[in-house]
Simulated assay, not measured.
Amino acid sequence: MSGSTERAKTAVIVEDDPDIRHLLAEVLESAGFSTVAVGNGIDGVDAVATHQPLITTLDVNMPGIDGFEAARRIRQRSDTYIIMLTGLEEEADVVLGLGAGADEYVVKPFRPRELRARIEALLRRPRAGESGAAAPSHLNGAGRPTPAADAVVDISPSSADTSGSPRPAGVDAADEGEWLVHRDLRLDPDSRIVRLGGDDLELTRTEFDLLATLMESKRRVRSKADLTLVLRGESYVTSYYVGDADKRAIEAHMTNLRRKLGDSPVNPFYIETVRGVGYRLTSELSGS
């Protein structure tokens, strides 16, 4: 078969604890992967460059270079899905890990069945540049989150023509209906392009999916548990355990997203926090 088929069967494990390394290999091999295991960050970066795996697991505290630096180096040369594993639980460490390019952040000790479920859900999300990847179950045919009945977005060309909103740079009138708009922020779910003002905005896969979900939902509040399940393609809270580490990861992704938008959580222009509940878009009438 093709090289992409081989790649889909490969995972690199970067972990200095031999017992955890063995456990990770068991979980990944039970999911159909062949595994390459190394014990430090430098060897991990080299292993990813050599094998171009679909999945890479990274321990944070390792000899040589730590997981954060390893993730940054790996992300420069590979779009492998990165799962960081650590005993650290502080939000600052979650922010560092996700900001370095990780896709998932798992706190030790972890349950093998839960890690397997996270891996399978992660594989349903498109890698960078995969605009034609199959949409997760929570997405409609256009590859965008399915909004609730009270959050239907009218983005037809006719409504765009009467809104008075400027057309995104480089977008023809016939394509305008594909863009979601909030203030000067525009997002195309199909091409996975985000524009802030007239400039393209570089977001990670997770940041894009979070922003797309919020822009579809508009003023409907999305909880951290809800957003966790959206990212993993799960339909109901009862079908998947959402723990404190999951919610901290959403907070970390939101911190990184706001930083890239130049948005302040204290005086938000795009995304506001509903204390004790979750997140939603700001009102178009406020903060202008």
Rank of each mutant, 00 (worst) to 15 (best):
D150C: 12
V107A: 13
P166T: 12
V107T: 14
S137K: 11
R183H: 07
A212P: 05
D172F: 11
P136V: 06
F110P: 08
S158C: 08
T146A: 15
P126L: 09
L203E: 02
A148T: 10
D199F: 05
L201C: 04
M215Q: 01
T162S: 15
D200N: 06
D154K: 14
A121V: 04
G132I: 05
A133K: 10
E202Y: 00
P109H: 14
P109Y: 10
T228G: 02
V152W: 12
G141P: 06
S158H: 14
L139D: 02
G198H: 09
S156K: 12
V181T: 15
R144L: 11
R167Y: 11
S158N: 14
P189W: 00
D190A: 11
G198K: 03
A148M: 11
A212N: 10
E120Y: 03
L210N: 08
I119L: 08
P147V: 13
L139A: 13
A133Q: 06
L115Q: 04
E178L: 12
A135I: 00
E114C: 02
N140W: 05
L227K: 05
A151Q: 04
S223F: 07
A117G: 07
L180P: 03
E207M: 05
L229I: 00
P157K: 08
A160S: 14
L227Y: 02
D190L: 13
V106L: 10
R195W: 03
L180Y: 10
S223A: 09
G197R: 01
R113P: 09
K108C: 11
L203T: 05
P126E: 13
S163P: 05
F208N: 01
D199G: 00
A142G: 15
R222S: 09
A148P: 10
A134N: 12
E176V: 10
G198T: 04
T228P: 02
R167T: 06
D209E: 15
E178R: 08
K218E: 12
T146W: 12
I193F: 03
L180F: 07
I155H: 11
I193C: 08
R186V: 06
R116A: 13
H182K: 08
A128N: 15
N140V: 03
L115I: 08
D190T: 11
S158W: 15
G143P: 14
L203Q: 07
E130L: 10
R127F: 13
D175K: 13
V194Q: 05
W179V: 06
S217R: 03
P189K: 01
R205N: 04
R118S: 07
N140M: 07
I193L: 06
R195T: 07
R124Q: 15
A212Y: 05
